[in-house]
Design a protein around this nucleic acid. Structure first.
Lengths: 330, 330
DNA sequence: CTGTTAGCGCCTTCAC
DNA sequence: GTGAAGGCGCTAACAG
């Protein structure tokens, strides 16, 4: 805050009008005579005046801020979603305050406190694992993605992870695989658990024993989990990973062990992060379209902020067939 | 902004003291008797009171906000740097306002206006391509990374991109490569241009003709640029890409054309994004350590905000040898 | 149409 | 130690 910021009073004085009039031309709150408008505009120009959002918020009684809670700014999945939301919000008077929860529940709660303190008018939750009760004190509408939250003033964009994971596993089954493993995680939101359930169901239906190991949803976790996987189940021919980063970590382990993809081991990811299509071989994965998700969320957000009830029609999850899966003889 | 937020006046009334006293216990501005402290604390607790940063900022005359301008929330390189800075700022009273410039100069200027409007107390520029003159109206200290800016109240964390690119190219030269291409970009900041210069110099010194094509610093641009590259120079045996994303795009093109890495074509990237180590084969690249960069920036920022002069000691750029380069016979 | 008067929620003198 | 005022920059009635 520099002392060099002119205030509305200075503009008023220079234009020979009252502060209220300046405010009026600024906000179009009421008609002002052409002459005064000109004078005000000119004064604003000359002074390089910009209204202080701080003061405006205080006076108007609203912050025009919306909180966006995501796990990590560096996430190749959530980063692009945040980008998409931000882009759409630019055309509105609302300004996003993005805060990372660093994959930790306490951090997420702190972040929520922070947002509450800043009087955000709505909150978007991306991939959190919050309890519904934690949202109570917020007192503002909440939009969740990655976990289905219910409750008053709470809406969720829920994609059918269970079904998609089931389909992905069946896909592997149909390609003739029998020894299919899943790399899940204890970290992450409900979506990750649902993928595990979808996998489990498909395996059960096929009369096969599930083989599940756990990572951290990051590349290193995928690598380690795969190491463990092959130590326990050396005959695994296909891996379905809970997300692309995990799949990419798995890929490296396979590479180092001389196991070819897809010749020796088939690999399926989840998310379709930008880099998935650029893996070697290009990764077959379940696509969660960041752009569309961001769009849907932003639309709902706008509705919410205008006091309307948002419509969150679900986005279909599609398996994108690339080249990391091969058909095997039964 | 909900009407349900208790104010300092309500706390005061409930505690049987004056608002000033509540403020004092809140900020430790002056000694308050033990009893009143207790009463105030209790009232705060019972009411679930949280001070409004808005009002505090207005009253104190400072925003405690710092602006962070980056190209894109989805960037695998800048995202992690933002994450690192944010993490370090959490222990301070300052709150980052991150805004994406979307790789466009006008957007960057708009973002600057936005930050100025919000009275940020300092600005961090990540990978922008702003003119020094654009910073003038900001009126707050600026910290730049990715382009060396000079001027009053302006500091830059400058890494020697030219030298690093020179070394990367020499590395390829020493491995026996002669037909070395560089994929640069017209997009991006000065650092990208400096890499081009470093490459050019190394080639010149070796008496070789440079072969340069341009992408957009994203994967798709790397792919296209490589296509163009091989159309024009089919005998290329090594590619030095201006960043990892470009290298990864190049990698896909090579894969599709049946050119093996590193057997047929060697590849070197720049940045060492998290996924670089997980490419197949793991990508040899010039490491720009996100964590350290974030740390250095955050430290300088703190110094700046306390009115000190920041010390921005340069961070060395190291070539990380992995497996995407092979030695060829001369 | 436009100026005056009150705040928004909080902090900071200034007296007591 | 503590309360009463005044003000941060702006908007929103309220009178003309």
């Amino acid at each position: 805050m520099t002392r060099t910021h002119p205030t509305i009073a200075e503009v008023a004085r220079r234009a020979g009008v009252s502060p209220a009039t300046v405010s009026r031309v600024l906000n179009g709150t009421a008609r002002v005579s052409r002459e005064k408008v000109r004078a005000v505009l000119q004064a604003i120009e000359e002074l390089g005046y910009t209204p202080s959002p701080l003061a405006q918020s205080l006076a108007k009684g609203r912050s025009y801020a919306v909180g966006i809670l995501l796990p990590d700014f560096g996430s190749p999945f959530y980063g692009p979603i945040l980008e998409a939301i931000t882009l759409e919000l630019e055309a509105t008077p609302f300004r996003p305050i993005a805060v990372p929860g660093h994959w930790s529940l306490v951090r997420e709660l702190e972040a929520l406190d922070f947002l509450r303190g800043h009087r955000v008018e709505a909150v978007v939750l991306l991939g959190t694992s919050l309890e519904e009760s934690a949202l109570k004190p917020l007192g503002v509408p909440v939009l969740a993605f990655g976990q289905a939250l219910t409750g008053p003033q709470t809406w969720s964009l829920v994609l059918d992870n269970r079904e998609a994971a089931h389909r992905a596993t069946r896909y592997l089954l149909e390609k003739g695989h029998r020894h299919i493993a899943h790399i899940s995680s204890h970290r992450g939101g409900a979506d990750v658990r649902e993928r595990l359930q979808g996998y489990r169901r498909a395996m059960r239906e096929a009369g096969l024993a599930p083989r599940v190991v756990f990572g951290n949803l990051q590349e290193d976790g995928g690598y380690e989990a795969t190491k463990e996987l092959f130590a326990r189940f050396p005959d695994t021919t296909a891996i379905f990973a809970a997300n692309d980063q995990t799949a990419i970590g798995a890929r490296l382990y396979l590479y180092e062990k001389g196991l070819r993809v897809p010749e020796d081991v088939s690999l399926v990811g989840f998310d379709d992060i930008p880099l998935a299509a650029y893996q070697i071989p290009p990764l077959t994965t379940v696509r969660q379209p960041a752009r569309e998700i961001g769009h849907a969320l932003a639309q709902a957000l706008k509705a919410l902020l205008e006091g309307e009830v948002p419509t969150l029609f679900p986005i279909p999850l599609q398996l994108v067939e690339r080249y990391s899966v091969r058909e095997v003889g039964t």
